[in-house]
Deep mutational scan, measured.
Amino acid sequence: HYVEVNGKKIQATSAEEAEKIAKKFAKIYNATVLDLGNYYKVT
Rank of each mutant, 00 (worst) to 15 (best):
residue 13 T to K: 14
residue 42 V to G: 02
residue 9 K to A: 06
residue 11 Q to C: 15
residue 10 I to Q: 01
residue 18 A to M: 06
residue 34 L to V: 14
residue 17 E to R: 06
residue 37 G to R: 00
residue 15 A to G: 06
residue 34 L to F: 05
residue 42 V to E: 05
residue 17 E to K: 06
residue 5 V to F: 12
residue 7 G to Q: 03
residue 39 Y to V: 07
residue 42 V to I: 09
residue 33 V to W: 08
residue 21 I to Y: 03
residue 9 K to F: 13
residue 5 V to W: 10
residue 26 A to F: 04
residue 42 V to P: 05
residue 33 V to Y: 11
residue 18 A to C: 06
residue 15 A to V: 11
residue 41 K to T: 08
residue 5 V to H: 05
residue 32 T to R: 07
residue 29 Y to K: 05
residue 24 K to P: 00
residue 19 E to Q: 12
residue 25 F to Q: 03
residue 31 A to M: 15
residue 30 N to F: 07
residue 34 L to R: 07
residue 27 K to R: 10
residue 31 A to W: 10
residue 9 K to P: 04
residue 8 K to Y: 14
residue 13 T to Q: 13
residue 32 T to F: 10
residue 23 K to R: 13
residue 21 I to C: 11
residue 7 G to H: 06
residue 22 A to I: 03
residue 26 A to T: 02
residue 25 F to P: 01
residue 25 F to T: 01
residue 10 I to K: 01
residue 25 F to M: 11
residue 41 K to H: 07
residue 32 T to M: 13
residue 33 V to H: 02
residue 30 N to V: 04
residue 23 K to G: 07
residue 7 G to V: 00
residue 28 I to C: 14
residue 42 V to N: 03
residue 24 K to T: 11
residue 2 Y to C: 09
residue 12 A to T: 12
residue 15 A to K: 15
residue 18 A to Q: 00
residue 26 A to Y: 03
residue 32 T to I: 15
residue 20 K to V: 09
residue 41 K to N: 05
residue 29 Y to E: 06
residue 20 K to W: 12
residue 34 L to A: 07
residue 15 A to R: 15
residue 15 A to Y: 08
residue 32 T to Y: 10
residue 18 A to R: 01
residue 12 A to Y: 07
residue 38 N to V: 09
residue 4 E to L: 14
residue 20 K to N: 10
residue 18 A to S: 04
residue 21 I to H: 01
residue 10 I to L: 07
residue 6 N to I: 05
residue 41 K to F: 12
residue 33 V to A: 05
residue 3 V to F: 02
residue 8 K to M: 13
residue 9 K to M: 12
residue 24 K to W: 15
residue 17 E to L: 08
residue 7 G to N: 05
residue 20 K to L: 12
residue 28 I to D: 09
residue 13 T to E: 13
residue 43 T to W: 10
residue 38 N to C: 12
residue 6 N to S: 06
residue 17 E to T: 05
residue 20 K to P: 00
residue 38 N to F: 11
residue 9 K to W: 12
residue 10 I to R: 02
residue 37 G to W: 05
residue 43 T to S: 11
residue 29 Y to L: 13
residue 37 G to D: 10
residue 43 T to Y: 12
residue 30 N to M: 08
residue 23 K to L: 13
residue 38 N to P: 09
residue 6 N to E: 05
residue 26 A to S: 05
residue 34 L to I: 14
residue 7 G to Y: 03
residue 41 K to L: 15
residue 1 H to R: 06
residue 37 G to Q: 06
residue 4 E to N: 03
residue 3 V to E: 00
residue 37 G to I: 07
residue 32 T to E: 13
residue 12 A to L: 06
residue 38 N to W: 11
residue 1 H to S: 09
residue 26 A to L: 06
residue 18 A to E: 00
residue 35 D to W: 14
residue 39 Y to M: 06
residue 23 K to F: 10
residue 12 A to Q: 01
residue 26 A to G: 07
residue 12 A to C: 15
residue 33 V to M: 07
residue 22 A to G: 03
residue 5 V to C: 10
residue 31 A to P: 01
residue 16 E to K: 13
residue 42 V to A: 03
residue 36 L to E: 06
residue 34 L to K: 08
residue 23 K to D: 07
residue 4 E to I: 13
residue 19 E to R: 14
residue 18 A to G: 01
residue 20 K to F: 09
residue 8 K to A: 08
residue 5 V to I: 13
residue 37 G to K: 02
residue 33 V to K: 01
residue 18 A to L: 02
residue 42 V to T: 02
residue 2 Y to A: 03
residue 34 L to E: 14
residue 35 D to C: 12
residue 31 A to R: 02
residue 41 K to S: 09
residue 32 T to Q: 14
residue 42 V to Y: 02
residue 32 T to L: 12
residue 37 G to E: 08
residue 1 H to K: 11
